[in-house]
Simulated scan of single mutants.
Amino acid sequence: MAFYGVASNLVMYLTTQLREATVPSVRNVNNWTGAVWMTPIAGAYITDTFLGRFWTFTISSLIYLA
């Protein structure tokens, strides 16, 4: 939900508040969208490769509880 809320207004924010040109702001939003969609895949690969399923669950649960 937060992704779609930010993504829908990000070009407008970059062009009006930060005075960025339209083409670079659209390019920045597209790069941000790609990063948002690719980092969970990379994170899942890294955690499954190095930590394993159970340690990933345990560590993430402890972080959540903290």
Rank of each mutant, 00 (worst) to 15 (best):
Y4G: 15
Y4K: 13
G5M: 15
V6Y: 10
V6S: 14
V6E: 12
A7F: 05
A7V: 05
A7R: 09
N9V: 11
N9M: 10
N9H: 09
N9F: 09
L10I: 03
L10D: 04
L10K: 04
L10F: 05
V11K: 07
V11F: 03
V11N: 08
V11S: 07
M12F: 09
M12A: 13
M12T: 14
M12K: 12
M12Y: 11
Y13C: 07
Y13D: 07
Y13T: 09
L14H: 03
L14G: 04
L14T: 02
L14Y: 04
T15D: 04
T15I: 06
T16F: 01
T16I: 01
T16A: 03
Q17K: 04
Q17N: 07
Q17G: 02
L18G: 06
L18Q: 13
L18W: 06
L18H: 07
R19G: 03
R19C: 03
R19D: 03
A21W: 07
T22L: 14
T22K: 13
T22D: 14
T22V: 12
V23C: 08
V23I: 13
V23S: 12
V23Q: 13
P24K: 05
P24R: 06
S25W: 04
S25Y: 04
V26Y: 05
V26N: 05
R27T: 11
R27E: 13
R27G: 10
R27H: 10
R27W: 11
N28R: 13
V29R: 07
V29N: 08
V29F: 07
V29C: 10
V29D: 12
N30K: 09
N30C: 14
N30R: 09
N30T: 13
N31M: 10
N31D: 12
N31R: 10
W32G: 14
T33E: 09
T33I: 14
T33M: 14
T33R: 11
T33A: 15
T33Y: 11
G34R: 12
A35H: 13
A35Y: 13
A35I: 14
A35Q: 14
A35C: 14
V36A: 15
V36G: 12
V36C: 13
W37V: 15
M38H: 07
M38K: 08
M38N: 10
P40E: 10
P40Q: 10
P40V: 09
I41H: 01
I41N: 01
A42K: 04
G43E: 06
G43W: 03
G43Y: 05
G43A: 12
A44P: 05
Y45G: 01
I46P: 00
T47N: 02
T47R: 00
D48M: 01
D48E: 08
T49R: 02
T49E: 00
T49P: 00
F50N: 01
L51W: 07
L51Q: 09
G52A: 07
G52P: 06
G52S: 08
R53Q: 05
R53S: 03
R53T: 01
F54T: 05
F54P: 01
W55C: 01
W55L: 04
W55R: 02
W55Y: 06
W55H: 04
T56K: 00
T56P: 00
